[in-house]
Design a protein around this nucleic acid. Structure first.
Lengths: 129, 129
DNA sequence: GTAATCTTTCCAGTGAGTGGAAGGTCAAGG
DNA sequence: CCTTGACCTTCCACTCACTGGAAAGATTAC
């Protein structure tokens, strides 16, 4: 199938699919006319990439995951290690996000919402101390 | 203080601090010798940038967030509106991350982490379950 | 006094795409 | 058969938010 169909089936834009080929993630066949020709197996890999990128894995991590996916003798310990390190990152991000949420909530709570320019929280945070 | 100290205190690399100056996020003073000279107020802004960037806000969004601290002449109603819209974004980000966290936690919990070839993480990513 | 460690500027490269031009191909309608 | 429009191809440039490195000047430590 052509790249457009593969794009529809995988959820990845054609540009991205070509980019993934550029960086060696998958090599589809070529039709007589020079068009890329995607097999169902290629589409499965594209979907795999689409999902794992969406889970926050970097392209390099996706390359590793894809290799493990393709390798029937893979060790699931490798996959687990990658996923666990991602979990650590996610947790840190959530904690930081909550901190920022707190800061902004204070800001909003103490903001009069009228035309007066004074805002005690702004003054504090902008480093008067 | 010099850029190195500001870097230590803010957690941002000197390169990034200079970049933020380049794109007009903050303009430190200059010492006699031409070195950038950071005040505590500058350091607070840098720390704020460090946090908000780490949470997925774009530099343009950070510019707006920073304006909440800097622009004391702004009608506080505007300040409040911007802060509240950012709060909405933060909440959505937290929810998204929690979903991702749940998915990955579930997958890690069911992954044996041994040499057996079946791995629920890969199976899920590849979309057959 | 000299070596190590800043700091400065500028230029180039990264990751992960995205946009657009110039041209080749294909299926449908008149 | 011809044209139109939707595809497809390559290539080059651009994005964003940095990051690395070179060359040169300033400061600090022994």
């Amino acid at each position: 199938m052509n790249i457009g169909t593969a794009s529809d089936k995988s959820g990845l834009p054609p540009k991205t699919i070509r980019y993934y080929e550029d960086i060696g993630l998958l090599k589809p066949g070529r039709a007589e006319n020079g068009y890329r020709d995607y097999s169902m197996s290629d589409v499965h890999k594209l979907r795999f990439l689409q999902r794992s990128r969406g889970l926050g894995f970097s392209v390099e991590e996706c390359r590793q995951l894809l290799a493990l996916y393709e390798d029937k003798e893979r060790a699931s310990a490798d996959v687990k290690a990658i996923a666990q390190s991602k979990l650590g990152e996610i947790e840190r991000k959530i904690l930081e996000l909550r901190e920022l949420q707190h800061t902004l909530q204070h800001l909003v709570a103490h903001c009069h919402g009228d035309q007066r320019p004074d805002c005690p929280i702004l003054e504090t945070i902008s480093g008067r101390n």
